[in-house]
Amino acid sequence: MFELKDYHVAYGQSEVIKNMNFTLNPKEIVAILGRNGMGKTTLMKSLIGMIPSSKGSVTLQGKELKAMKSHERVASGLGFVPQGRMVFSTMTVQENIETGLTSTKRNSVPDDIYSMFPVLQEMRKRRGGNLSGGQQQQLAIARALASEPSVLLLDEPTEGIQPSIIKEMAKTLKQIRTQRNLSIIVSEQVLSFALDIADRIIVIEKGEIVLDTPRDAVDESKIAAYLSV
């Protein structure tokens, strides 16, 4: 349903993502692994349209997204949770989630979002910037879900979050997938989290896919070797 073909991203002359091809299936969770500087964040940012792609195509349910602006991509069904959360810090929790409703017809936060993240309901009058890291991560996910995406992109969601909460997050994300019938692409450095959550693991190195394997057939030591410096 979500497909990259011959996909390239470049900053000026230097190509960061080279000739990437892959297809995401409905309700699939794919983890993209790779060391720092291998192009994970660049890939994610270009998929949501913050950085233009230089060549190739990206389609969602047959619709070409390449020429679209970020907000049009969101309206077509992409949701994005950036690295470092990027919640709107001077706005309240509720207002943060409401910004995600812009591309929908709704104007109040649907109940199921609050029931998924009860802590956000409790804190809905607080400013986003005054939440803890883990709470901000939940807020960023809730904000992305508010636009009712069919594909959710998460860029390093575990960064700066304590291990016990990482476990819980994996559970929540799987739950979201079943409840809302969406597919998830998550970029990661933490192997255990990726193995916990993903149906399929992709390893990228220097902007190219070097390994693409279903979760069940994973050779942990081989992936660990890719991730070690």
Binding site: S70, M86, M91
Partner: peptide, 15 residues
Amino acid sequence: RAVVQNRDMAGAVGI
């Protein structure tokens, strides 16, 4: 207010 705080991110939530 969202756009002012972070133009790129505001676009990425659908604004």
